[in-house]
Each structure stands twice: as structure tokens, then as C-alpha cells.
Amino acid sequence: MPEKENQYTLCKEERLYAEKRIEALFAGGSSFIAYPLRVVYITRECNLEDGVPTVSILTSVSKKRFKRAVKRNRVKRLIREAYRLNKNEFIEFAAQSGKSFDIAFLYLKSELPTYSEIEKAVLKTINTLNGKNQLESKSENNS
């Protein structure tokens, strides 16, 4: 569990930046829509070194939707902020499932969002992932 001061940070280990992992995410990942976000995710086994499940995120906003980098960066900041403030729920979910997650948030709308829109989508992501994980575990138990 993170320390009290570090609880709401978004460090490099929590960002998805390795090219191989990003390629694997988009090649073999599952996706769903939590409008205005499209969420692509893939599960992996926990690292043997720490044994602690982790969640790594990637944010992306299409240049086709926002020509100006200022607006694209604004949307990415909003997504990262919503994740950062609610990341404890993602970490608890990963700990319950015993797996690590790579998650990509892709913004779909052509208008600038409000923070509340993005936060609702991020919270919906947690609920949807939780539901899908429960379905997977039930199907594994029945096999």
C-alpha cells in the first residue's frame, strides 16, 4: 500500500511507456466504451519481484479531433487527474483480482470535456472492469 504522501501521485511506473507493452495492449487487449472514453485493457501476471499488482495507464487524444496541441494536452491532463484521484480503486481492484493491468484511455468526443464527464467515465471504467473480471472468474471456476 502506498504511503500517505505518495498516495495521490502518478509516478513513472504507473505510466505505460514501453513500446512492446503498448503494442501488446492494442494487439491483444479487450476494449469497451465508457463515453467519452474508449478503454483498452489487458491483464498480465504480477511481477515476481514485488508481487504487488500494478495498474499502468496510457492516455491518448486524436489529432483528428483536436488540431491544437493545447486542447489535446488539456484533455490528457483531465484524464490523468481523474485517474490519479481515483487510482486507489483501481489498485484495490487489481489486488483483489491478483493481476496487473495495462489500460489505455482514448478520448472520442470532438469537444472539450468537463472534469465531471471524465471522472464519471473513469469511475464507470472501474465498475465495468470489475464486472468483466467477475464474469471471467466465474467462467474459470465452471471449467
Rank of each mutant, 00 (worst) to 15 (best):
G29L: 02
S100L: 09
I118E: 01
E89W: 08
N88G: 15
E136D: 13
R72C: 01
E23L: 09
S100T: 09
I57L: 05
E92W: 08
P53Q: 06
T114F: 15
R74W: 07
R72W: 02
E81L: 02
S97E: 05
G29D: 05
K99G: 04
R74Y: 15
N130L: 10
N133D: 08
R44D: 09
S62E: 06
P113K: 12
K63C: 08
V70T: 15
K20E: 15
V75A: 07
E13M: 14
T59G: 03
I103E: 02
G29I: 03
K71S: 11
A95M: 09
K71C: 06
K109I: 08
P113C: 11
Y41V: 01
D50E: 14
L106I: 15
G51I: 10
L48H: 12
I91D: 04
K124W: 11
R21P: 04
E13R: 15
V70R: 10
G131K: 14
E81W: 02
I126C: 03
T128A: 08
Y107N: 01
G131R: 13
E119M: 04
E81Q: 07
L123H: 12
I126M: 03
I118R: 01
V40L: 04
E89Q: 14
A34Q: 00
N73A: 06
V52H: 14
Y41E: 00
R38F: 01
I91S: 06
E119S: 11
R68S: 11
Y83F: 07
N130H: 09
L106P: 01
S62R: 15
S110R: 10
V52G: 10
I118F: 06
A24I: 07
F32D: 00
S56A: 15
E117N: 09
V52F: 13
G29N: 04
A18E: 15
T128N: 10
A27Q: 12
K76I: 02
K20S: 15
A95Q: 09
D50V: 05
V70P: 05
I42P: 04
R21E: 12
E111G: 11
K99N: 07
I42F: 08
F66A: 05
T125V: 09
F93W: 07
S110E: 12
I22D: 00
K76S: 07
V55R: 00
K12M: 12
V61D: 02
C11H: 11
I91G: 04
E45N: 11
S62T: 10
T125W: 05
R38E: 07
A82P: 00
Y83T: 04
I33N: 03
E49G: 10
D102V: 08
E81H: 07
K20M: 11
A34P: 00
I57H: 00
K63F: 09
I91E: 03
A69E: 10
Y35S: 08
K20H: 12
L123Y: 11
K99H: 08
I33K: 09
L129W: 00
N47L: 15
G28R: 13
I91Q: 09
R65F: 04
I33T: 12
L108R: 12
F32L: 03
S56W: 01
N86I: 03
L58M: 12
R21T: 09
C11G: 15
A18H: 13
A27K: 13
E23A: 08
L10S: 06
N73E: 06
E81N: 05
S97P: 01
N133M: 14
K67I: 07
I91Y: 10
